[in-house]
Design a protein around this nucleic acid. Structure first.
Lengths: 189, 189
DNA sequence: CAAACTTCTTGATTTATGTCAAGCGGACGC
DNA sequence: GCGTCCGCTTGACATAAATCAAGAAGTTTG
């Protein structure tokens, strides 16, 4: 059972047959460190699942890059607005390490619904979960200081701070690299 | 055609028959100014649609209230995690004016899917739209100053600043009432 | 292996925003 | 109509975080 299948199983709770069917629709894609999987302005016509490696989603704002999210094993990577609504992608998606993905094209993705009748319902629940995670993230920014946001992320996933360049974590937390560096020093002391 | 029907029509593009059917599942509820529609910890077993009036969604954080969103005509109000996943509500939902809602109970809501086969798909797309709006809101907090966030909201919906107490808008924008007051003064001058 | 980049840290300083406190003014009840 | 309350503004000050600049540490490249 691949990581993808394990993930679909745990989140969507489908049968073994459906599981094999769904995962057969994906194809394996590898990215070299530094390679782009998607660039803003393109059409995101495929959905990726991170099997291994680290992927960064960012948006160019003026002369700086704002990291929206870092995806590691078990995350899907996509520009959802582009994928579902055929709009130009807003996010750049970029490999921070060598990456293995399972990827499904939009056209094939649509066929899942035919093969698995409950799929739209499962998919709805999945997206709703993502929505509620983002709701929390917004509240985080409305109610916490930079230090509290750092502490929260560190407690949730300390290993990120070994594996991901700190400048990207700082951006994702909404602070400068200098500030993150100082918070880390303070927390460590 | 009610505002609710117009809204469902424009977003979900269903037939006249489906439209009438769906809207018949809702019932009209009114709230007095200051009344709570939902309190954190309760189970949100109903979904509301704002027909008129202004509704505030907030969360208690320590000794202060953080306003997550202000809903006016055309918005749905619900704690989605509670409604879909039967978890205790995290948001308080509170009438800032007298409010007219159309409300549907979860049990009846489930019946829509039986009556309108395309419903799970439509619902998925609707939630996905909400998700992408929140994605933008997160990026807003990662990349903009308090002043830029104020400008953005003011340009998007200036009338909010006449109709909603500024303290709540300040909270929703992630700043103090004093800061919002000063930004408004500066922008006006 | 050394040079050239990156990335991170650290210090000095500036700026944006928060906090505290006082006062103004409109809305509401009596 | 007058006091009271509530929401907003304003000022003085404190603090968090950004910016600018330099240097250290680690990595990649030739």
């Amino acid at each position: 059972m691949s990581e993808l299948e394990r993930y679909i199983q745990s989140y969507f709770g489908v049968t073994q047959e459906d599981l094999a069917l769904i995962s057969s629709y994906f194809e394996r894609v590898t990215l070299k460190k530094g390679e782009h999987y998607l660039r803003a302005g393109q059409h995101a016509d495929r959905l990726g699942f991170v099997q291994s490696g680290i992927v960064r989603e960012y948006v160019q704002v003026g002369d700086r890059e704002v990291t929206k999210w870092i995806s590691t094993q078990g995350y899907f990577v996509v520009d959802l607005a582009s994928f579902l609504f055929d709009r130009p992608a807003r996010w750049n998606i970029h490999a921070l390490t060598d990456v293995e993905l399972y990827v499904i094209k939009k056209q094939r993705y649509r066929q899942i619904a035919d093969a698995v009748p409950r799929w739209p319902e499962l998919e709805k629940l999945f997206i709703a979960r993502c929505f509620t995670v983002l709701e929390d993230r917004v509240v985080t920014h409305l109610s916490m200081t930079a230090e509290e946001r750092y502490q929260q992320l560190f407690q949730f996933n300390p290993s990120l701070f070994n594996t991901v360049p700190l400048q990207y974590l700082a951006s994702m937390l909404g602070m400068t690299p200098e500030t993150l560096s100082r918070l880390r020093k303070r927390a460590g002391a």
